[in-house]
């Protein structure tokens, strides 16, 4: 009966997980790339959501972001091990060169879009985003350098992030 689930299982990529999962940034970027398919993306978000609901309050509150990322990592892993065994010449072989190329191209495109989006920001907003994300400066340090309040720094940062996020919309989460 669950025609949708079966249909999407057939379309799943027949490859082992190529991520090292040492850094969440890579993991998330990878996750989003895999989720270019709207149906898959919705199913995964759905499942992540259900797991969040099942989490005990205490554990979730401790560090909600880390908890969500753990869920995402587990899901991605389960996603791959759930592939039927005959769908893949399973020999623990390294991911194919094709995949690496395809993935790198997608990642490169993603970074290009981010840089474009950054260039379109106002100078102050761009300064805030780069100082915080690239240079690792605190809100206070940025505020001091630019002569604005820490809360203003936060606002610039949120605005810059939305712009970058929307510029990458079809990469990181499909558009409606």
């Amino acid at each position: 009966m669950s025609t949708v689930r079966e249909a999407s299982a057939k379309q799943r990529p027949k490859r082992p997980p190529p991520f090292a999962a040492s850094q969440y940034g890579r993991l998330l970027a990878f996750l989003n790339m895999r989720l270019a398919n709207e149906q898959d993306a919705r199913e995964l978000a759905q499942e992540a959501y259900l797991r969040l609901l099942r989490a005990t309050r205490a554990r979730l509150i401790e560090d909600p972001t880390a908890y969500l990322f753990r869920i995402a990592r587990n899901l991605l892993y389960e996603w791959y091990v759930s592939l039927p065994p005959d769908s893949e010449p399973l020999s623990g072989s390294a991911p194919s060169a094709d995949l690496a190329v395809e993935e790198q191209a997608a990642l490169a495109q993603h970074m290009d879009r981010l840089e474009d989006a950054l260039r379109r920001l106002s100078p102050k907003c761009r300064a805030v985003v780069l100082m915080h994300r690239r240079d690792g400066m605190t809100y206070k340090e940025i505020g001091a350098a630019l002569g604005i309040s820490a809360s203003m720094v936060k606002k610039h940062l949120a605005h810059g992030l939305v712009s970058c996020r929307l510029a990458c919309a079809d990469f990181a989460g499909a558009e409606r």
Partner: peptide, 30 residues
């Protein structure tokens, strides 16, 4: 959940941007 994951992916890949002005230049620009 989905939107937050997508936003976090962007947030976490921002440190990788290159070809952008230095902090000092940014201060001047701003």
């Amino acid at each position: 959940v989905r939107e937050f994951l997508a936003a976090a992916a962007v947030w976490d890949s921002l440190p990788g941007v290159s070809a952008q002005p230095s902090a000092a230049a940014l201060v001047r620009l701003a």
